[in-house]
Design a protein around this nucleic acid. Structure first.
Lengths: 341, 341
DNA sequence: TTACTTTGTTTAAACGATTAAACACATACT
DNA sequence: AGTATGTGTTTAATCGTTTAAACAAAGTAA
C-alpha cells in the first residue's frame, strides 16, 4: 500500500499542493473557499493521508523530537522518569528517542551525536560521572538541553534535581532525634555531585548535633561489578567497629538493596538492632519485614518539570533555569522513633 | 553555531556535493582521485560534519528507526526489554523511539500512528488486551513488525514469546512433585493469550496427576486500579477454603508482589505453610526471607531475537517467524522439595 | 584519424513538505 | 475610466541528501 502524499490529494481534488498544505494546517483560513477546503479535508481523510514528518522536519528544521539519555533505562528510577517524560512530551506532540549510557560519559557522548544526527530538537540528560565535557559540548553548540537528577555545580546550565543536601540532612536528623548515637553512611565512592551533597547533608546534620562524627562511619564503595560484595564488606566493617553503628543511611536504592539482603541474612533486627533509612523507595522494601523509612523523590514533578523547561528552551527562551526539588521523608518501621539505645 | 552541510564541504574543497556524498559514503571508490577523497574527508572532519539523517531519510525513504510500543515502560520487565532492544538496535545503527500504551489498545493505536508519521521502519510491540485490530492494521498496511511477549494465536504474524503453557506446566509439576496436594493459581481475569496459556499449563499439569482439580483453586483478579485489594481478597479466599491450598502459583510479578506482601503480613510461613512459585524474578524476592522459586524468562534472548527478526523483515524477508522461548524454573527456597504435607 | 574505454567529476532531479511571492479575477472607490 | 483592494489559487524555491545520467578529458586500439 503506497503512502499518500500531499500531491496525491492535490491531484485528486484538482488543486495545487500549496493549497492542500494550507488547508490541512489551517492556514490562510480567510482566503480559501469553504467548499474547496472541505473537499480537501474529505479527500485527505478518504485517502487516509498522514503527514510525512520527515519531510516536514527537513523543511521546518525542527523534528518535534527530544532525546533522552539516562544511565540505564532498566533502572526503575530512570524508567519511571522515562515514562513520565514520554507522557508529558506526547501531550505537546513531541516524541522521545532514548538511549542508555551505562554510567559512561563516552557512551553518552556517542549517543548524543547519534541523536543529533537525527536532529532531535533538544535533550534531557542524566549525565554520568565525569560527563562535564558532554555538557560543555552541548552548551558550546547552543543545543537546548536540561540535566535531570544530576548536574555539575561548576557549569552554568539548566537542571532539575533534588535538594540532596537537605534530604540527607533531614534523614540524618530523623535518626538523631530517634536516639541514634552512631550513624553509618553507605554511599558510592564517586565525585557525582548529588552523592557528594548527600554525604555533606549527613555530615552537617551530625556536626550540628551533640554527636561527634566518626570518620569510620562513612563507608564509600566503588561503582563496580562486584558491588554486592563491596556493600557486604562495608556493612560488616561498620558493625565490627569497637562501637558498632546503631543506624544506617543508604544513599541509593541499589546500595540499600544489597545492604538489606546482607543485614537480613545475618539475622540483624530492624529497627531494634539497627535503624535504616534509604534514598528512593524500593518495591522490595514493602515486602521486607519492616517497611523502610525512606526519602521519596518527586519523580513525577521532576520529569514533568524537565520536559516543560526543555520545550521552553527549544522555543527560544534563554534564561537559565535551575530547580532543586524537595524530597519527603516517609517514616515507616525501620527507624526507632523514641529514646536512646 | 550553524550546522555544516555537504554543500559547505563541497564549497570549501571546490567540488560538487555529489562528489562529497560519494566519498563520505565510500561509493565509487575506484573512480575518485585519492587526493580529492582525502581532502574531502579531512575537510569533513575539520568542519565537524555530521550527516543530516532527516534529509537522508527523506531521500532514502528509510529512517533507520524502530518504534517500540510496550504496555508500560516503567514496568521492569518491559524496561529491561527496552534496554536490550536499544542495545541491539544501536549495534545495527538503528535508533529506538518508544511509547507506553497503558495496556490500552486505543492508546496503542494512537502511538502506532504517531510513530508512523515519523516514518519508523518497523515496530516491536507488546500488544494490549484486545489489541487485535492494531495488529491487523499493521498487517494490512504491510508495515514490518514483530510482536513480543504476547501475541494472538488466531492472527498469522511474527512473534517472539514465551512457551507459557510449558512454563506453567513445569512449575505446577514441580509443586506436585514437592508434595503439594492443593495448588492455587493467582492470575488475571483477561483473555490475553499468554495468561490463558499459563492457566492451561497449570490445569493440564494437575489433570495429568493424581490430584483432582478444584475450580475454587483458580483465582482470577481483574486488571484494575485496586489490584492490591483484589489480590489480597483472592488470597484470603484461597486460604479460607474448607481445604485451604498448600501452594500458590502467581502468573505475574505484580500479582506476586502484592500477594507476598499480604501473605507475609499475615505471618504465613514459606514454604512450611505455603509453597510459592512466581513468573519473573522480582528484585524483591531476594530480599524476602525465603528466596522464591520462580520461572525465569529469557528476556535478553527475547529482546535480541525480536530486534533481529524485525530488521530482517525491514530488509524484505517475507516468511513469518514465530518463536516460543523456554522459561527455566529456578528452584530456591519457597517450594518444599520433598514429601507430602 | 576515428572510435571506443576509462577515469574523474558535475548536473539535475528527486524525496514530501512549507511558504513567500506572484498571479488572475472580481469588486469597490474616486 | 482608472486605480486600489480583496479573494482565491498557483508558482517556484527551499530544506540536505542521494544517485542515475551526462559530460569532459585522457588513454587505447584499430
Amino acid at each position: 500500500m503506497k503512502k499518500v502524499s500531499l500531491k496525491d490529494i492535490a491531484n485528486k481534488v484538482g488543486v495545487s499542493t500549496a493549497l492542500v498544505s494550507y488547508v490541512l494546517n489551517n492556514q490562510k483560513t480567510g482566503r480559501i473557499r469553504k467548499e474547496v477546503a472541505l473537499k480537501i479535508k474529505e479527500t485527505a481523510k478518504e485517502l487516509n493521508y498522514r503527514t510525512n514528518q520527515i519531510a516536514r522536519s527537513l523543511k521546518l528544521k525542527k523534528t518535534f523530537t527530544i532525546g533522552l539519555i539516562v544511565a540505564d533505562i532498566s533502572n526503575p528510577f530512570f524508567s519511571s522518569l522515562a515514562r513520565i517524560i514520554e507522557d508529558e512530551a506526547d501531550k505537546k506532540n513531541y516524541t522521545v528517542i532514548f538511549g542508555s549510557a551505562d554510567e559512561n560519559a563516552e557512551k553518552s557522548f556517542k549517543l548524543i551525536n547519534t541523536l543529533l544526527d537525527r536532529q532531535v530538537d533538544g535533550f534531557i540528560i542524566a549525565p554520568a560521572e565525569n560527563g562535564e565535557s558532554n555538557v560543555i559540548y552541548l552548551k558550546e553548540h547552543d543545543i537546548p538541553f536540561v540535566l535531570i537528577d544530576r548536574y555539575f555545580p561548576q557549569i552554568e546550565t539548566n537542571w532539575v534535581s533534588l535538594d540532596n543536601y537537605k534530604a540527607a540532612y533531614m534523614a540524618t536528623r530523623h535518626l538523631i532525634e530517634g536516639g541514634s548515637k552512631r550513624i553509618g553512611l553507605v554511599t558510592y565512592n564517586t565525585n557525582l555531585f548529588n552523592l557528594q551533597e548527600r554525604k555533606r547533608g549527613y555530615e552537617n546534620a551530625i556536626g550540628e548535633s551533640k554527636i561527634a562524627l566518626d570518620r569510620n562511619w562513612c563507608s564509600e564503595v566503588l561503582f563496580a561489578d562486584d558491588i554486592k560484595l563491596l556493600v557486604e564488606k562495608a556493612i560488616d566493617e561498620l558493625l565490627a567497629l569497637p562501637q558498632p553503628v546503631d543506624s544506617l543511611l543508604f544513599t541509593s536504592n541499589t546500595l540499600a538493596f544489597y545492604g538489606l539482603k546482607h543485614i537480613h541474612a545475618n539475622g540483624i533486627k530492624i529497627p531494634d538492632d539497627l535503624s535504616i533509612i534509604t534514598f528512593d523507595q524500593m518495591d522490595a522494601s514493602d515486602l521486607f519485614y519492616a517497611p523502610l523509612t525512606y526519602l521519596k523523590q518527586p519523580i513525577e514533578e521532576m520529569g514533568q518539570t524537565a520536559t516543560k523547561i526543555l520545550l521552553e528552551k527549544i522555543n527560544e527562551k534563554k534564561e537559565i533555569v535551575q530547580i532543586n526539588l524537595q524530597a519527603s521523608l516517609i517514616v515507616r518501621k525501620s527507624t526507632a522513633t523514641v529514646g536512646p539505645k
